[in-house]
Design a protein around this nucleic acid. Structure first.
Lengths: 198, 198, 198, 198
DNA sequence: ACATGCGGGACTGCCCGTTCAT
DNA sequence: ATGAACGGGCAGTCCCGCATGT
């Protein structure tokens, strides 16, 4: 039950430092224009060390620690809520728990990840990997196993709607608050999946 | 209105040749293991000429001529059908118009595009670009403008469901016919979007 | 006086384990495609520990404990035999002392070490290092000091003939027994070196 | 039969320039200590362009244009000469055709290629690739097909003797002229291969 | 106009020296 | 004090855009 150990903490610090410098440089010069060598120089590590911490340049943007949190909150949502309502609840509550600085951070992360084709592509891929977890979290509320196509396809639909919401939000230059757009997009799916007999 | 001209036809032939050789090599050695130099050598062009025909290696797999067709058929579907039903109709009819060889070709293309992370990522990105067209095609049946979040988010949801369907189909090693899985996934969204007052 | 000690034995075991896993992985995925990290993972050691046991990846294949044995047997061969005959005798006798499993092991080792350019190169280098020992072992039968160019060049010639034999054997997909090919190649040099007056 | 074209000539010049700078840097700082980046900088090309001209760093040292020459001269040697005598003749004549500067160049090339383990290893490998051509050139004088083990093993023996000669020559710090040592080593093999009945 | 060559940047893998933990 | 982890450096490969020559 000891603390993570000195080594582990130092690693986390380095990781964090790389990411901070990278995001700053991306903001300053653009994503493409920033090379890994520059990031490494800024973070005072060797370029090859960079790849110990992030497998690709894109990963700098795509690390997301919130997904498991959301999943947990969906499960913890009031039992009488349907799958979509539960997810909306989870996002609302989760978002409220973070401070303004963190909201800012998320917003810029999302904006960046939607802006550049190569990052966007990987981001979408990641979302659909997470769709599986979402399916597992929603399955009980649909009374079906998570592998059932009704559940997984519906989870995919939810993810699809959210992606469009993020793209819309970005295209509108983030006029509306991020969480609101997400919520509205989810509202569209409130009718839930068809009650199939399969 | 004259025929496309000799030069244009030669270009199409080269393009086709590149793609054929590439897909064969992908099948033989895997996607990653196949280099553009190998493809170029097989197609008897110089490596740099490759990029005149395909901007990236991934595009070799992702060319899809069917999307505009689907869109047209959604518009042409019987007026009494809802948005999802119209799309299912379009896919069913479109699929029936193609011969078995072409079905085969599509299936292997889809399987390949889902199999490798880097292609998959770009494929997903493409799907969401197409989501916009789908939104336009479905908008009339929802009685709302295509930019309305209800329409675009729902189109995104449809695309999301289809993506999961394709992944499932691939994960199951294509036991079920491709079109059937797609149809089942769409059935899940038959309830349509919520009638929001926004 | 005492047995090698527990620590030493454990080291040998680890060494052996690494090599076994490595050769298996080489056979499964090819030499190039196998990374040291994979080998380390399979042998359940850390990648850096690998280098405590083998200085380079190539050494995994090139460890050969038989060379000193051969040298000793050349010296021990009947005095009336010429240098080449003595070596053939040594190889014949040495080979006969090993069981079939060991023959198998040697054969696959040799095949692997000839197959890949980078290993082959190092293997050849090693052979010529051993040529010096061979020269020392053959010198008495030539009535000249081992540093004499007649002796050393002839030893080099012997090694060269053996190398070609190994490559031929491998190219023929090991149809003929390994030791036979070696013996035939040596037979070619039975006339021995010219009796120079230098 | 037009002239090689500007492009081609420029390529040759670049290739030559890279090699010159590299050999100079090797002489100044040693082989290991010289990085490809330094060579590229000296030759005023980008590091990646380096690899268009030389696949590996070792190739900088190992390019040898003389081997085909030797082979031709072996074939052209007087018919009454045996295989070894013909080769000695070819080397003697070939060497005489080059000027002192070129002798110097060859000598330093050989010295360098024997000095460093990784280059030496690759050099030896190259020699045995060339052994096949030597076998073809010597075959007529042995009255046997080039694939015959007698021929190929003897060619290997010749190569082996030459390798030892080069190493000896280098170890003695090049006291004796290069071509003389080679000739002496070959003299050792004048008896030729055994007349086997196989 | 069109192919080719070159630059450059991402990324991988090998290997070594040093630092840290047990 | 032994052994693992870590950082760094370098060779090498591949993709791809831009300049250059044919």
């Amino acid at each position: 039950m000891s603390s993570p150990g000195l080594r582990e903490r130092k690693k986390q610090k380095t990781r964090w430092s790389i990411q901070e410098h990278a995001l700053r440089l991306f903001a300053e010069q653009g994503y493409e224009a920033t090379t890994i060598d520059q990031i490494a120089a800024a973070a005072e590590i060797s370029p090859s060390t960079f790849f110990r911490y992030f497998k690709t340049k894109e990963d700098l943007v795509l690390e997301d620690q919130y997904d498991p949190m959301i999943e947990a909150m969906v499960r913890a949502a009031p039992a009488e809520l349907g799958p979509v309502a539960a997810l909306r609840y989870a996002i609302r509550e989760g978002y409220a728990m973070l401070d303004a600085a963190e909201h800012e951070r998320i917003a810029s992360r999302v904006a960046l990840s939607m802006s550049h084709p190569s990052i966007r592509a990987r981001a979408l891929d990641l979302f659909f990997v997470n769709a599986e977890q979402l399916a597992r979290a929603m399955a009980p509320r649909l009374g079906r196993p998570p592998e059932d196509l009704v559940v997984s396809a519906f989870a995919g639909a939810v993810v699809g709607a959210l992606i469009v919401a993020m793209q819309t939000w970005r295209a509108e230059e983030q006029r509306t608050p991020f969480n609101l757009v997400m919520d509205q997009a989810l509202a569209v799916l409130e009718p839930g999946p068809a009650k199939l007999t399969g």
